[in-house]
Design a protein around this nucleic acid. Structure first.
Lengths: 112, 112
DNA sequence: AATAGCGCTACTAATACTGTAGCATCCTTA
DNA sequence: TAAGGATGCTACAGTATTAGTAGCGCTATT
């Protein structure tokens, strides 16, 4: 799958709008999850695989390539870590943690 | 694909944590996009299809079923719309619009 | 020199998505 | 009362993506 570069056409959108590239990227399996897990701290390839509950190495590697190409993740001697930009992205989505718990509560307790 | 219900195991995770169910859901093609587009206002099935740049009806319908089951989208006489919960979710991710533009700028102008 | 761990690739099977056709239903308008 | 015309949605075949497993090439340790 090609890397969803802002300005170019991406999966599901011809417009080239940055938000569409971002939504394409984040709409791929484990993309959000990798960002989420990496915020817990940098990790080696195999550590990251374990944090992501045994995601297959081929997929992890594909996602990491994309995230690196888009400057959200960096690989250093300490392993993979979020870039500053990646941390910004995490900062935006981090409220999803708390929110998802309320949401789960609402659904499973059935407040209809 | 089964609906990622918080509390149950989902694609890529056995833990049942709400955040994992949410990340599974949002990691599906066009899930975020549909929420994004519906925030622009309620829409009928075919309107929504057009806003989503000709997403195939089968996929749109699948995504809508999931979003309805998870109380993020409602279908009314006026068509589909976000629920209150869905609007909350949108409120969290809405900064992605502005952020994606900066991000695009950083990548394409190459501030390396 | 053998062992163990690492990043990562290769390959196949399983699953998800795309794209098109079209059915059933509900308006219009004649 | 019936012939369009639009709508919500399903069916299905073809294609693309993901899962799962094996293992290679390398480095470090024993």
């Amino acid at each position: 799958m090609s890397i969803p570069m802002p300005g170019e056409q991406v999966r599901g959108s011809q417009t080239g709008k940055p938000i569409m590239a971002l939504l394409d990227l984040l709409g791929r399996t484990w993309a959000l999850g990798v960002v989420w897990q990496l915020h817990q701290g940098s990790a080696t390839f195999r550590e990251l695989q374990q944090r992501c509950e045994q995601i297959s190495p081929s997929l992890l590697n594909t996602r990491l390539k994309e995230l690196k190409a888009l400057h959200l993740v960096d690989s250093t001697s300490k392993g993979y870590q979020l870039t500053e930009t990646g941390e910004q992205l995490f900062a935006i989505i981090s409220p999803l943690g708390d929110w998802s718990r309320q949401w789960a509560n609402q659904i499973t307790k059935g407040n209809v």
